[in-house]
């Protein structure tokens, strides 16, 4: 029971209470760019959830090695970046084999792999192992963090998309604020709302 409670607590912290995009700014630029392509939001979020979960899990398992556990942030960066790159290459290799037999065109496949790369090499994905290490989470919590990152990204992107849809047809906005500036303002309000849930950052 304690195990399940810890799992859900970590998941809820990352996705709702401490939404990584709004309270930490992780993956903010990717969230904005994905929100402009509403059809890809779900796919992008699933990819982020996959990469962050797998990377977080592997990195957490590696933390059982004492040298790594007691190492500095520089060691952690080296290990996590290598793990993320390896996870990316292995995933792409498997996907290439799977997609070979599909009826996707070469252009579609290339586009898909470009998206895969953008979703894997992302601040929100690389931040998860660091947060797991800092918060001294267990393996199950590391998995919850990874899944929560995907959900957090989806919530953030969807909220940004909803705002975008209304802002782009709004003629009340001054022309100098039209487009990017007013969207930044809208995200600032969302950040304030999410930060207001806890009042302070739990992790950093």
């Amino acid at each position: 029971m304690k195990f399940i409670a810890a799992f859900f607590a970590a998941f809820l912290y990352v996705s709702f209470t401490q939404n990584l995009v709004f309270t930490g700014g992780y993956g903010a630029s990717e969230a904005i760019r994905s929100a402009a392509r509403p059809k890809q939001i779900m796919l992008f979020s699933i990819m982020i959830a996959y990469f962050s979960t797998v990377t977080s899990l592997i990195c957490r398992v590696l933390l059982f090695i004492p040298a790594l556990k007691d190492g500095s942030m520089i060691t952690s960066l080296a290990v996590y970046a290598v793990v993320l790159t390896v996870v990316y290459f292995v995933s792409v290799a498997i996907l290439r084999v799977l997609l070979k037999s599909s009826d996707w065109s070469d252009i579609e496949i290339e586009k898909f792999f470009r998206q895969t790369a953008v979703s894997s090499f992302n601040t929100i994905v690389l931040a998860i192992p660091f947060i797991t290490e800092k918060a001294t989470y267990g393996v199950h919590e590391a998995i919850a963090q990874g899944l929560g990152a995907g959900v957090a990204f989806f919530i953030a992107t969807w909220l940004i998309y909803l705002g975008m849809r209304r802002l782009e047809v709004d003629t009340e906005t001054p022309l100098s604020f039209k487009g990017t500036p007013v969207l930044f303002m809208y995200i600032a309000i969302l950040c304030l709302a999410f930060t207001g849930i806890m009042g302070k950052s739990l992790f950093f």
């Binding site: 904005i32 760019r33 929100a35 402009a36 392509r37 509403p38 998309y161 975008m164 849809r165 782009e168 047809v169 003629t171 009340e172 906005t173 001054p174 022309l175 100098s176 039209k178 487009g179 990017t180 969207l183």
Partner: peptide, 22 residues
């Protein structure tokens, strides 16, 4: 703008016509 929703033509703005708030 990068923040315009892709595929939507709503954001295409003609700069002569209705008045904005400013």
């Amino acid at each position: 703008s990068r923040t315009n929703i892709k595929g939507s033509k709503k954001a295409k703005v003609q700069l002569k016509g209705a008045k904005y708030a400013d």
